[in-house]
């Protein structure tokens, strides 16, 4: 993995920024406004420390200690009827505070409520696996490890799930470039042909603005195909689509546009 560099200003700056612009925030309301959530929060608070709790978009968000996660989820599953773990993953706050925010999205089918459990861990720390409580955490924790490099302690098979096993780097980190680092750029060439082949195959062409009407293959113009490496002049004549050679083909009837029947009716 590459060394961390702050990327606050990595994007091109906008031409115009409103000095008085305030980014809109999703309004947060206190938990007391919802009876079900208030009761759930009281049950969690009885046994565990809660740092912050609020309701946002009709869902309760609860911040807890990192060590309590297994106990909290067990309590919610067995006593509070939150029987499903819909989703879990991490948020990269490394640039701000060298921390990851881990979230667990819980669903109760009986109460028709959703609760999001959250906590912070320091960069480099591992989380406690909840795979024993929810089978859905199995792949979610593997994906979190794959994408962020956060390991889950007690997971039975802590390996990458999306990227290949021999991949280096964790792609969802904010420091990871979208087009890949050097390892990613040469991954398939190195693996299949070896590092010596880099010079022969060449770097990836990733310039999306590159337009070459006369590129060697000319696959961009239907009806104007040329063999690879053919000389293409600037004023090429209009080529009518010719499906077959002029003299016809052995044992294959030559396509004759005049004598062929054209079906005009799409509803035939």
């Amino acid at each position: 993995m590459r060394a961390y560099k702050p990327k606050d200003n990595v994007q091109a700056k906008a031409y115009y920024t409103d000095r008085y612009y305030v980014a809109p925030q999703v309004p947060k309301t206190p938990v007391d406004e919802d009876e079900v959530f208030a009761a759930d929060l009281a049950a969690i608070k009885e046994k565990f420390e809660v740092h912050d709790a609020y309701i946002q978009v009709e869902q309760m968000v609860v911040y807890i200690n990192a060590n309590d996660i297994y106990g909290v989820l067990e309590l919610m599953r067995d006593e509070l009827e939150y029987t499903q773990l819909s989703e879990m993953s991490a948020i990269d706050w490394i640039a701000k505070s060298n921390q990851f925010e881990i979230f667990y999205q819980m669903l109760s089918m009986t109460k028709r409520k959703r609760i999001r459990i959250k906590y912070f861990i320091n960069n480099g720390d591992a989380v406690q696996s909840v795979e024993k409580l929810f089978r859905s955490a199995d792949w979610a924790e593997r994906e979190m490890y794959d994408m962020f490099g956060i390991e889950a302690k007690g997971h039975p098979f802590m390996k990458r799930i999306l990227m290949p096993y021999d991949w280096q780097g964790h792609p969802l980190l904010k420091t990871y470039p979208l087009e890949g680092d050097e390892f990613a750029a040469w991954y398939e060439v190195d693996k299949i042909y070896g590092k010596e082949a880099r010079d022969i195959i060449g770097p990836e062409l990733r310039d999306t603005a590159r337009v070459d009407r006369y590129d060697s293959e000319r696959f961009a113009r239907l009806g104007h195909e040329v063999p690879r490496g053919a000389e293409v002049s600037d004023d090429d004549p209009e080529v009518t689509q010719n499906y077959q050679e002029e003299g016809g083909v052995f044992l294959v009837k030559k396509l004759d546009k005049e004598s062929s029947k054209v079906i005009d009716d799409p509803q035939r």
Binding site: P177, I192, E204, R206, R221
Partner: peptide, 24 residues
Amino acid sequence: GGMFNTYATVQGVDRIIPVDLYLP
């Protein structure tokens, strides 16, 4: 590679195998 200008996509199969015909 098309619109997938990302770390996980091979930028053209002709980086891996020889191609006879490209279809747009």
